[in-house]
Amino acid sequence: MRRFYFEIALNDDIKEDADGVDLPDDGAARREAVMTIASIAAEAIPQDGPLDIAIRVLDDRECQVFRAHVTFDFDDTEREQKLRGSSQ
């Protein structure tokens, strides 16, 4: 088992991981990161504008093992423009 640290950022709000998680190898750490970012994405509802979720996995020597990010980039301007057009 090796200890890995998972640093997670929602837009500019970065949360460092002081405790870490023990996992067998890099592959398991990568999988843990992917599952985590997917869960955060599933539970996060973008409130005001786009949301970027980033995860960075560091090993016990602070070397980066893996990094990924997911962006919610939604756009509802087209429908609004149509609605505005029809009301004119």
Binding site: V21, E32, M35
Partner: peptide, 18 residues
């Protein structure tokens, strides 16, 4: 352990900690 909690909640351990 938090690994047990995560396996009860069906989440990753990191997500359970968070």
């Amino acid at each position: 352990s938090q690994v047990d909690i995560a396996d009860m909640l069906g989440t990753s351990t990191v997500h359970a900690n968070r």
